[in-house]
Design a binder for these strands. Structure first.
Length: 741
DNA sequence: GACAGTCCTGTTTTT
DNA sequence: CAGGACTGTC
């Protein structure tokens, strides 16, 4: 790296020369705005890229332009994405476009890059060389353990909330020590945070947020390192910038310093991760914090029909404080957007299936159809209907490969082999399969670990030494210790795959799961076998070559939860949540469950700012569709086992009637736009004490449920769906409605 | 220590 | 409804 600058200069000359001959292909097929973004000479750029506007294309071409024309060396480029999938795609598209390839370029997720920094500078970062990554599941167990150890009531201080507290603070860059105490309701959480930090440090464990927090601190603390990386990464590019949290933003600012050049690509209208710490404001702050940053809008959409874009534009226009952007296309209007009012979720699912059928009968591919929903629980009705219809489908989301219990059990042994201090792994492995080490024995070990502030592994050794335990327990513990030591020694010369294979046999894990399934074909033993296969295919990327193979594999398993494995999909209808649909597109999109309380979600209506995020989610959903979009809501739906009446989502009313076709109208959904003044009431801001979904009694019409509302004050009206009399609009001031329990 | 039965509580997800 | 946590029995 010492000769960096010489090489830089030489390659710059070479490339400039080269550029004159052959750069035209870098701009081929780009529109004026895209070209502008690719070739801009401004130091900092904010590309406001609407859905379907070709942002990845711009990003990749920009990288190629910089390296091939401007003369930026590949190793001077740092490109950051949010998901592994996006990182892979970016790398492969860069490789395809650039003859010299991407050697030396860092392309990865924030977490992947932070991980790499920490592996390379573990000493300066204050970590053991063998530090391991704690996934959210491990983290939760750990927090649970700590709450118990601290003697706190886990009903008053739920582990999930504690974990959330810790992560939220880390995402904002705050350590337990830097948080102001003195608040009776949060002090216990602070105490948990503090204890958690101590335990993690002792065990050499780093959670996801910690990867970033520590790398950030590392750069701030080690001036030499920071200087080195600033010199190296003169060009930083960040995708999905609207999803960055405070810490990630700080990280970028530090790394860029006063000399780096930063390009961010994002869409404030597609920010849907505020609930986990993402800050849309970063987009605005970027313009403020990076001097003379220039904003370029990509508004031309290459994906959807004009009608679909009209719907998307109209819905998102209801959000205040946007940077502003209006998608347009030269394509035809296309079909109208269909709106279906279902009786219940099964009716909705049957209709979705009918539309998929129709698509396939018309010569379309099942894989071009997606069914999207707000929450995972909604997938069931669709799955049942698809199953019944005999149509192939695939559900995204759910437990991924490296998160499966049996796989995590196996990984726990590997982690322990790599790092004896890994308490989280030890807790998991020690009695799976059961080997006579029960709760009492374990509690004693934990107590010693706590008192003497040592990892559990060390506490076990001392406990055996002290001879305070029953001999049976002592024997069991020694057996476990020997097992791990033996595996470590015997595996040292083995390749990764046979090593794991041996471990599965020696620990009894494979037998345990095989036995459990009683000879029946079992996915769990298959997964254990699959783990061996994955390991045999695993090869360290060139940057990780210096790393211990086992450590590299464990890092891979923690950061890459394993969606990549299951990519062996046939042609099938794609079922997924709106969140996981971001970044994808489909010819036909069915968006179900558009009811108040479900979408927008109940809890989102109670917190300020969240409703806007739900609307962005609707925007994301709508803009996934290329040709055909079907929206639907159900009058009644089983939620948590009970039938619940629903009202059509407010987002449906925001779609311009001109592009909408009601394929099965129910009660007046579409009303003239003059409702503008009268907001539909949320659940909390009840007009006159009435809420959507509430049961009421009317002297003349009998009993019913409030399904809609508009206006306020003396003009407030509600729509009630009466059992006998059907749907009626009533003016609250006159109707004398009686609320029911 | 293992298992069966009961209670309880429910967004969204990547790393 | 359904998965997880918890309790009680062998």
């Amino acid at each position: 790296m010492r000769q960096c600058s010489d090489e830089m200069e030489a390659s710059a000359h070479f490339r400039r020369y080269n550029a004159r001959m052959d750069v035209s292909h870098l701009l081929d097929g780009l529109n004026a705005d895209q070209r502008e973004a690719v070739t801009a000479t401004d130091r900092h750029l904010l590309i406001l890229a609407g859905a379907g506007s070709g942002k990845t294309r711009v990003l990749v071409h920009r990288i190629a332009w910089l390296t091939q024309v401007v003369g930026v060396p590949p190793w001077g480029v740092l490109a950051v994405t949010f998901t592994n999938k996006a990182a892979r795609e970016m790398r492969s598209r860069c490789d395809a476009l650039m003859p010299d390839g991407t050697r030396g370029m860092w392309i990865g997720t924030f977490h992947g890059i932070a991980h790499r920094l920490l592996r390379q500078h573990w000493q300066e970062a204050g970590l053991p060389e063998s530090f391991q990554i704690l996934d959210s599941d491990d983290q939760l167990r750990m927090v649970k353990r700590i709450i118990a150890d601290l003697g706190l009531d886990d009903r008053r201080f739920p582990p999930r909330q504690a974990a959330w507290f810790i992560n939220a603070h880390k995402d904002e860059g705050r350590r337990a020590a830097s948080i102001q105490g003195g608040n009776a309701s949060t002090d216990p959480f602070l105490e948990i945070y503090r204890a958690y930090e101590a335990v993690c440090q002792r065990a050499g464990l780093v959670d996801f947020a910690e990867l970033l927090l520590r790398s950030h601190e590392l750069l701030l603390r080690e001036a030499g390192l920071l200087d080195h990386y600033r010199r190296r990464f003169g060009t930083i590019l960040i995708d999905e910038f609207q999803d960055t949290n405070a810490l990630q933003y700080a990280f970028v600012r530090v790394l860029a310093g006063d000399t780096g050049s930063v390009l961010v690509v994002g869409d404030d209208d597609q920010s849907i991760y505020g609930w986990r710490g993402a800050r849309v404001e970063n987009v605005q702050h970027f313009l403020r914090d990076f001097p003379q940053a220039r904003m370029i809008r990509l508004e031309r959409n290459y994906r959807s029909s004009a009608n679909i874009l009209a719907a998307a534009n109209a819905v998102i226009a209801n959000n205040p404080g946007r940077l502003g952007k209006r998608l347009w296309t030269e394509d035809a209007d296309g079909e109208p957007i269909d709106l279906f009012a279902a009786h219940d979720e099964n009716d909705e699912a049957r209709y979705a299936v009918a539309r998929v059928r129709e698509w396939i009968d018309g010569g379309g591919r099942a894989g071009d159809c997606a069914i999207l929903y707000r929450s995972n629980a909604q997938s069931r009705a669709f799955e049942e209907a698809l199953l019944q219809a005999g149509l192939p489908y695939r559900v995204y989301g759910g437990v991924r490969f490296f998160e499966r219990a049996e796989v995590k059990d196996a990984l726990a042994y590997l982690r322990l082999i790599a790092n004896r201090a890994d308490d989280a792994a030890l807790e998991r492995a020690i009695n799976t399969p059961t080997r006579g080490i029960g709760a009492r024995t374990l509690e004693q070990v934990r107590a010693r670990a706590r008192e003497e502030a040592v990892p559990l592994w060390e506490a076990i050794a001392r406990e055996i030494e002290a001879r305070t335990l029953a001999s049976r327990a002592r024997q069991a513990l020694s057996g476990f210790v020997d097992l791990i030591e033996r595996l470590d020694a015997s595996g040292a010369d083995l390749e990764l795959a046979p090593r794991i294979d041996e471990m599965l046999a020696a620990t009894g894990l494979r037998a345990h799961y095989a036995n459990e399934s009683r000879g029946m074909m079992d996915a769990r033993t298959d997964n254990l076998d699959e783990l061996v296969t994955v390991a045999s295919r695993f090869s360290r990327s060139e940057e990780d070559a210096s790393m211990n193979e086992l450590a590299a594999f464990l890092g891979y398993a923690a950061l890459e939860a394993g969606e990549g494995q299951a990519e062996s999909w046939e042609d099938g209808i794609q079922l997924m949540t709106l969140h996981s649909a971001k970044g994808l597109e489909f010819a036909q999109v069915f968006l179900g469950g558009m009811e108040e309380g479900l979408f927008p979600a109940q809890r989102s209506m109670e917190e300020p700012g969240r409703l806007e995020e739900e609307r962005r989610l609707a925007y994301v959903g709508i803009t996934r569709a290329r040709e055909r979009l079907i929206l639907s809501w159900a009058e009644s739906r089983r939620i948590h086992g009970i039938d619940t009446l629903g009202a059509p989502s407010r987002f449906l009313r925001e779609v311009p009637p001109a592009v909408l076709r009601e394929v099965r109208p129910r009660i007046h959904l579409l009303r003239p736009a003059q409702v503008a003044g009268g907001r539909a009431m949320g659940s909390s801001d009840a007009a006159g004490g009435f809420r959507l979904g509430q049961r009421v009694r009317h002297a003349g019409f009998g009993e019913g449920t409030i399904v809609d509302a508009e206006g306020s004050g003396a003009h407030a009206r509600v729509q009630v769906n009466f059992e006998e009399a059907g749907a009626k609009w009533l003016v609250l001031a006159f109707a004398r409605l009686e609320p029911m329990a």
